[in-house]
Each structure stands twice: as structure tokens, then as C-alpha cells.
């Protein structure tokens, strides 16, 4: 899904925090215009928008209504507990969690990613279900596995684990929950 406006640039976000958006990216320009303080970079041929988490729902609504990104492909999260020293673009304050929303525009044939930083002490993010009702389950999954709450979600309950489960399994400090079984034939750590 290459962006016809820009050549393919392959580099790792981890090393540099992303490269700047090319000058002829009109979506990036409109976003930078409308949302002051938003940082726009490119990563593996896709535009990435780093915004403050309070503005997430607003950015999603702008992308849907003005920029024709009518599909929210997924909402997921990342726990950076173990790589807190990662590179982020200038102007972004790194926190423990990131919530990543991916959008797809059929008329423009391109994708865009919105990343917000979520602190561990207050893991709340506005919900996108008002604009994209279909992400309700994706946000429930993020809540179930990371413990990040979504403000305004109609039914924020666990979706994979049983309702009375304690803990959030995909956090880096969650126990691996493996039973120690040793198989004679295998010769590995397990």
C-alpha cells in the first residue's frame, strides 16, 4: 500500500523516531495545519501522526469527515515498559503505553496511523466509537489486555479473558502464566 505521493523510504522507527513527512503530502499538511502540536512523520512508507491523547477523537473525526479515511482498521496498544529509552520524534513526550489507530482511505488508496502516548498513572484515552462504531471490539481488546480505558465506550468489558479475570495479560509486567512442563525430547528453555 505505497503512497503514490512519496518514494519508498525504508528505515526503522526505533532508531530515528521516523523521518519527516514529504512536502507534497497534503493530508499531513492539513493535519499539521488544523492540529497545532501534532507531529507528522513517515515510517515504512506510511504517514504517522503523533498527537496528544485528548485530541484523538477529534483527529479521527477530521480524518473521516474531511480526509476521506472512512475505515478504522484497528486500534491497538504498545507497552514500552522495557524500552523506555526508545527514540520518538521531536515534540513527542514518551509514556509507558502507546495507543495506535490505523485508518484506511479507499478513495485516496492510502493508509495513515495515529499514535498517542498514554501514561501509566492515568491510562485513559477518548473512545473512537462515536466516529467509528466498528472499533468497539478493538477497544475492548485493548482494555482487556492492557488495562487502558476508553472514555465514552458503550460497553467496556473484557473480551478475551473471562469477566472475572484479574490482571491485564499483555502488559510487560504481567506474569507469563505458563505451567512449567519439561519434555524430555526437547532441548530448549522449555
Amino acid at each position: 500500500m505505497t503512497d503514490p505521493a512519496a518514494p519508498e523510504v525504508r528505515e526503522t522507527v526505533h532508531e530515528t523516531g521516523g523521518s519527516p513527512a514529504p512536502p507534497d503530502d497534503e493530508v499531513a499538511a492539513a493535519l499539521a495545519d488544523r492540529f497545532t502540536g501534532a507531529v507528522v512523520t513517515r515510517s515504512h512508507g506510511q504517514t504517522v501522526v503523533w498527537v496528544d491523547r485528548a485530541r484523538l477523537a477529534e483527529v479521527a473525526r477530521h480524518l473521516r469527515d474531511t480526509e476521506q479515511f472512512t475505515t478504522c482498521v484497528d486500534v491497538c496498544a504498545v507497552d514500552h515498559l522495557l524500552d523506555a529509552a526508545r527514540a520518538v520524534p521531536a515534540g513527542v513526550g514518551p509514556e509507558r503505553f502507546e495507543v495506535v489507530a490505523n485508518f484506511l482511505s479507499h478513495p485516496r488508496n492510502r493508509r495513515i496511523r495515529v499514535i498517542v502516548q498514554v501514561p501509566e498513572a492515568d491510562p485513559v484515552v477518548p473512545s473512537l466509537t462515536g466516529t467509528f462504531p466498528g472499533v468497539a471490539f478493538a477497544e475492548r481488546e485493548v482494555f482487556d489486555l492492557f488495562g487502558i480505558r476508553f472514555d465514552g465506550h458503550p460497553d467496556l468489558t473484557r473480551i478475551l479473558m473471562p469477566d472475572d479475570w484479574e490482571g491485564h495479560p499483555l502488559r510487560k509486567d504481567a506474569p507469563p502464566a505458563r505451567i512449567p512442563v519439561t519434555f524430555k525430547a526437547a532441548g530448549g528453555p522449555r
Binding site: I179, V181, T182, F183, K184, A186
Partner: peptide, 12 residues
Amino acid sequence: PARPTVTVPSGA
């Protein structure tokens, strides 16, 4: 399948 040796103490 290899025969497992379960090292979990009984009752766990």
C-alpha cells in the same frame, strides 16, 4: 508426543 515431566507441585 514426548512424555512430559510435569514439574508443577501437585495441587497447583
